[in-house]
């Protein structure tokens, strides 16, 4: 006598098929990642040499195999640094406003909503805006600084969101303990809340930096383009590493495509390094560590 009936074959098959599809979906998502990383590494290593890292493209002929991305690396580092210097204070202060002063009022709700909407502003639109405002309307020239302005716009919402999240994690008890000692609210924020949330905020900023370091489109119409070294981000066109990859990839010669791959490798190394450091900081601070 069997009391327990087995489930029907069709239900069993359906369950298995869905399980197969779910595993397949994951595999489908990982395949391009592996493929991209593999091609970038295998093609990029060919030109990943000292000349690439220390020379610009100045005076390099169309078919020449040498030349490098030094000017682009310098440009990217300067632009990203400037973008952080603009966006971190504004983003952090906005987050402080939302958490400590906003109280769910109309202003704070609309700021919060538009921070979300701002994450969706296409990077090319941010570039066009800086071009329209800084270069056409105010009459400045193309420069690394103009690029930094565009990147800063793209960084801000990410910085606000991550900082906001970290500030909200700071226990209210801590704030109240400080108030009870007669410390004014703003000093409590500066001396107690911010230090407590510090590493989390750093993590968020680094992830934001990693995101904009790979942006190409906004650089096209702000930093413009150059083949030679320009160390001054405030004067004249600069180069950026993503821009370098885009430019070399669009050229018809294999030597240029080789440089594009090496540029891509350098860019990915920088972005992944930023990501890794950010995650390590987050992990190091995580209460779940050692579990």
């Amino acid at each position: 006598m069997t009391t327990i009936q087995h489930i029907s074959t069709s239900r069993r098959i359906k369950d298995r098929v869905v399980q197969g599809l779910v595993y397949l979906a994951f595999a489908l998502a990982v395949v391009p990642l592996v493929s991209v990383l593999w091609l970038v590494i295998s093609n990029g290593l060919a030109r990943f040499d000292m000349e690439f890292l220390t020379h610009s493209m100045n005076g390099i002929g169309a078919r020449d195999a040498n030349g490098g991305a030094y000017h682009a690396i310098i440009g990217t580092l300067e632009q990203v640094l400037l973008a952080s210097l603009i966006s971190v204070p504004i983003g952090l202060l906005t987050a402080i406003y939302l958490v400590e002063y906003g109280n769910g009022g109309r202003l704070s709700r609309s700021i919060s909503f538009f921070v979300d909407v701002m994450t969706g502003v296409p990077s090319v639109v941010a570039g066009l805006f800086v071009f329209a405002f800084w270069i056409l309307f105010l009459g400045f020239q193309f420069s690394g600084w103009a690029g930094a302005l565009a990147l800063a716009i793209l960084m801000m919402p990410t910085v606000v969101r991550s900082a906001e999240e970290m500030l909200r994690l700071v226990p209210t008890d801590l704030r109240e303990a400080s108030y009870a000692l007669g410390v004014p609210k703003w000093r409590t924020i500066v001396k107690v809340v911010l230090p407590t949330a510090f590493t989390g905020i750093v993590t968020g900023v680094m992830l934001a930096v990693a995101r904009v370091a790979g942006e190409t489109a906004p650089l096209l119409m702000t930093v413009f383009f150059t083949n030679s070294i320009n160390n001054d981000p405030f004067n004249g066109p600069q180069m950026g590493l993503p821009l370098f990859v885009f430019d070399q990839a669009a050229r018809p010669n294999d030597t240029a495509v080789d440089r594009a791959w090496t540029g891509a490798l350098t860019l990915i190394l920088i972005v992944m390094l930023l990501n890794l450091v950010a995650r390590l900081i987050a992990w190091w601070r995580s209460p779940a560590r050692g579990r």
Binding site: T3, I4, I7
Partner: peptide, 12 residues
């Protein structure tokens, strides 16, 4: 359950 093992390998 009435003599049948719920944890038998054939039982889901």
């Amino acid at each position: 359950l009435d003599g049948e093992d719920l944890y038998a390998t054939t039982i889901e």
